[in-house]
Structure formats: C-alpha cells, structure tokens
Computed example of a mutant assay.
Amino acid sequence: MDQVKVQFRTPEEVMDFTNVVSRYECDMDLKKSSKKVVDAKSLLGILALGLENVLELCIYSDESCEEVVKAISRYVIA
C-alpha cells in the first residue's frame, strides 16, 4: 500500500482526478480522518469530504503505484 497526500481546490480538479484514477484497476481510498473514508474513484464521495482539505490517498496494490502517483502529481502535496 502506498500513501500520498492530495488536495483539491475546485470541483473541476476533483473531476479530473477521478477520471485519471478510474483508469487504474487498483483500489484507492481517500481519508480526511480515520472516520471519514471514501472511494477515491467516487466524485460525490470526494466532494463530500470538502474542497481545500488535505486528504490522504491510500493505493492498495501489490505492484508499484508510481505510475498512478505520477499521473496525479499536480494534486500531490508535500
């Protein structure tokens, strides 16, 4: 499992993000806290977490997830 922090500022960014991650077969979740977890491929789920929040993306895969992280790099924060 790989984890990176991401942030979205507009609904358009969320739409772009979900379009990109939906191309990959691995499961992905976004967490706002330990109690608020949504499917990273769900547009409405991400919007329910709110914009401008720092979210933790968890990618569940046995293989390297570098390709996914590279594809969403504009949303990854340090």
Score class of each variant (00 low, 15 high):
1 M>K: 07
1 M>L: 07
2 D>T: 07
5 K>F: 02
5 K>M: 02
6 V>C: 01
6 V>Y: 01
7 Q>K: 15
8 F>A: 02
9 R>H: 15
9 R>V: 05
10 T>Y: 07
10 T>I: 08
10 T>S: 15
10 T>V: 11
10 T>L: 05
11 P>C: 07
11 P>D: 12
12 E>A: 14
12 E>S: 15
13 E>T: 07
14 V>M: 04
14 V>E: 01
14 V>D: 01
14 V>G: 02
14 V>F: 02
16 D>K: 15
16 D>W: 11
17 F>A: 00
17 F>G: 02
18 T>Y: 08
18 T>L: 12
18 T>G: 12
19 N>T: 11
20 V>N: 07
20 V>R: 14
21 V>M: 07
22 S>F: 05
22 S>N: 14
23 R>I: 03
23 R>D: 13
24 Y>E: 09
24 Y>V: 10
25 E>Y: 10
25 E>R: 15
25 E>Q: 13
26 C>M: 13
27 D>F: 12
27 D>S: 09
27 D>Y: 08
28 M>A: 12
31 K>M: 12
31 K>H: 15
31 K>C: 11
31 K>W: 11
32 K>G: 08
33 S>I: 10
33 S>H: 09
33 S>M: 07
35 K>D: 13
36 K>D: 14
36 K>M: 12
36 K>Y: 14
36 K>L: 12
37 V>S: 03
37 V>R: 01
38 V>H: 03
38 V>E: 06
38 V>S: 04
39 D>F: 05
39 D>R: 03
39 D>V: 05
40 A>E: 06
42 S>I: 02
42 S>R: 04
43 L>K: 00
43 L>I: 05
43 L>A: 02
44 L>Y: 00
44 L>M: 03
44 L>I: 01
44 L>T: 00
44 L>W: 00
45 G>V: 03
46 I>A: 04
46 I>L: 10
48 A>K: 10
49 L>G: 02
50 G>L: 06
50 G>W: 05
50 G>A: 08
50 G>T: 10
50 G>V: 07
51 L>G: 08
51 L>F: 11
51 L>S: 09
52 E>V: 08
52 E>H: 15
53 N>T: 04
53 N>E: 14
53 N>S: 09
53 N>K: 13
53 N>R: 11
54 V>H: 09
54 V>E: 15
56 E>R: 11
57 L>Y: 09
57 L>C: 10
57 L>A: 10
58 C>H: 14
58 C>L: 13
58 C>D: 12
58 C>N: 14
59 I>K: 07
59 I>L: 11
59 I>P: 08
59 I>W: 10
60 Y>G: 06
61 S>A: 14
61 S>K: 12
62 D>V: 03
62 D>W: 01
62 D>M: 02
64 S>Q: 13
64 S>V: 06
65 C>P: 06
66 E>N: 13
66 E>C: 10
68 V>N: 01
68 V>I: 15
69 V>A: 03
69 V>P: 01
69 V>T: 05
69 V>C: 06
69 V>I: 15
71 A>Q: 03
71 A>P: 02
72 I>R: 09
73 S>W: 03
73 S>M: 04
73 S>K: 14
73 S>H: 07
74 R>Y: 04
74 R>P: 08
74 R>V: 08
75 Y>Q: 02
75 Y>P: 00
75 Y>E: 01
75 Y>V: 01
77 I>T: 11
77 I>Y: 11
77 I>M: 12
78 A>D: 12
78 A>M: 08
78 A>Q: 09
